[in-house]
């Protein structure tokens, strides 16, 4: 959304925007209520979402947080909370581009540096399942692509 607004300002310098160019506003306005509700639900359910994702990962791969003799569960939790919060704001503002620029591009290189791609792939796959308990179909339609973006970017 903010990225679209910036592009619009640049593209329409000194002239009126066309109907076509204003379409994203309409699209955003029709979904803003859903986005706000989903954002608030994610905010309220953050501890449960993280705990459930963690439990799923442990069930799937019991040693997932044991790397080099260290238990990295607390570090995983900090990282996952951060991605979830940035995902939520990307949902609210409908701005996956900004999410990519502000967090994912950097975080991808850091996760690669630690060889954590597999754990990231599993984390954001599990989160897509867990989140279905907290959001309704309409909200999921907007939020799942953002989680998928994290899975694809951080999982490779």
């Amino acid at each position: 959304m903010l990225t679209d607004v910036e592009s619009l300002i640049q593209a329409t310098d000194g002239r009126y925007a066309s109907d076509q160019e204003l379409m994203f506003f309409q699209a955003y306005l029709t979904t803003v209520g859903t986005r706000l509700r989903a954002y608030q639900k994610i905010q309220a359910a953050e501890p449960q979402i993280i705990a459930q994702v963690m439990a799923r990962l442990k069930a799937q791969k019991p040693d997932i947080f044991q790397i080099g003799g260290q238990d990295l569960a607390a570090k995983w939790q900090r990282d996952t909370v951060r991605v979830l919060r940035y995902s939520a704001i990307a949902l609210l503002l409908d701005d996956p581009e900004r999410f990519q620029e502000n967090l994912l591009s950097w975080f991808q290189t850091i996760m690669r540096a630690f060889g954590a791609q597999e754990s990231c792939g599993l984390t954001y796959e599990a989160m897509q399942t867990v989140i279905t308990q907290f959001l309704n179909t309409e909200e999921l339609k907007l939020f799942l692509p953002i989680l998928e973006l994290s899975r694809v970017t951080l999982g490779q």
């Binding site: 950097w106 290189t109 850091i110 690669r112 540096a113 630690f114």
Partner: peptide
Amino acid sequence: ANLMFLLETWWW
């Protein structure tokens, strides 16, 4: 620090 993490941090 982890070497790869260090290098990525330097280059960012």
